[in-house]
């Protein structure tokens, strides 16, 4: 297998950890505001799983970087251009339908990817994937059910879910837009090339969205710039303003 340098491995780990961090943060914004208590509790569980995974991915990333940083340092002290999450996960929550559609589109990708990571050549990646894949198997089951339920529900819920899908669809392609780093990671057997996951992903979401009576937009246009850090949306900066405020305002404190 090809030799992998540590910045390449770290880049992969940041991509994993930043996705779960930013999405976990977004989902946690619902706490106390959901349509019904049962959903409030369920969404908090999802956010907690994602934040727990963040600790593992970012914890391993800083270990690989070997600069003596902690997972908290990279979560709370990097600026937007250093974040490597997909644009999809930083998009605003919108209404509950948009949140659940975003969750489903990510969960489907996440579950396919984690399934492959169970065979990673890197033991630590394998171990994290083992824990995370069980959690995410439940996430995708739950978000699929909700997407189907709301897509097939009332006229209003159907319209809202279709609008959510139309809005989010241009952010799906970025999940599969591989670059040199992905190819190096794939060559080393650490993770699959994301482009290779597209068929399985399309099959999975195709089945669920059909059951939800929703139509996948024709366009295959894809925004990009999140996982490379070259151009995030304006939304990420606002997330960081909130998330990092205490650490930035009181740099010498421990919490």
């Amino acid at each position: 297998m090809a030799e992998l340098d540590k910045t390449q491995l770290a880049q992969f780990l940041l991509r994993m950890g930043d996705n779960t961090l930013i999405l976990g943060h977004r989902v946690s914004e619902w706490c106390g505001h959901s349509p019904v208590l049962e959903e409030d509790i369920a969404l908090a569980n999802t956010a907690l799983d994602l934040l727990g995974q963040t600790q593992l991915w970012l914890g391993y990333a800083v270990e690989v970087q070997g600069e003596g940083k902690t997972a908290d340092d990279v979560a709370f002290l990097r600026d937007a251009w250093d974040f490597r999450n997909l644009l999809l996960v930083e998009l605003p929550n919108g209404d509950f339908g948009q949140t659940m559609m975003r969750q489903f589109l990510f969960d489907a990708f996440h579950s396919v990817l984690l399934g492959r990571l169970l065979q990673s050549s890197d033991q630590m990646v394998r171990e994290i994937a083992e824990k995370a894949s069980k959690e995410v198997a439940y996430h995708v089951e739950r978000s699929s059910d909700t997407v189907v339920g709301l897509g097939d529900g009332t006229e209003e819920s159907h319209a809202r879910m279709q609008a959510a899908l139309d809005y989010l669809w241009p952010y799906v392609g970025e999940m599969f837009a591989s670059d040199d780093n992905d190819r190096a990671i794939a060559a080393a057997g650490v993770a699959p090339d994301p482009a290779s996951l597209r068929d399985e992903y399309d099959a999975l979401i195709g089945k669920v969205l059909a059951e939800a009576t929703l139509r996948i937009p024709d366009s295959d246009f894809a925004h990009k710039g999140g996982r490379t850090g070259t151009m995030h949306t304006e939304h990420l900066g606002h997330i960081l303003c909130q998330m990092q405020w205490l650490q930035r305002a009181y740099p010498n404190a421990t919490w």
Binding site: V36, L37, E38, I41, A42, N45, Y138, E141, R142, D145, G149
Partner: peptide, 20 residues
């Protein structure tokens, strides 16, 4: 107890509410 639209969702809600 809890509320759910159907049995499948009741199971899922029970998992989230009562097995945390």
């Amino acid at each position: 107890s809890l509320h759910a639209p159907d049995a499948e969702m009741a199971i899922k809600n029970a998992r989230d509410v009562y097995t945390r």
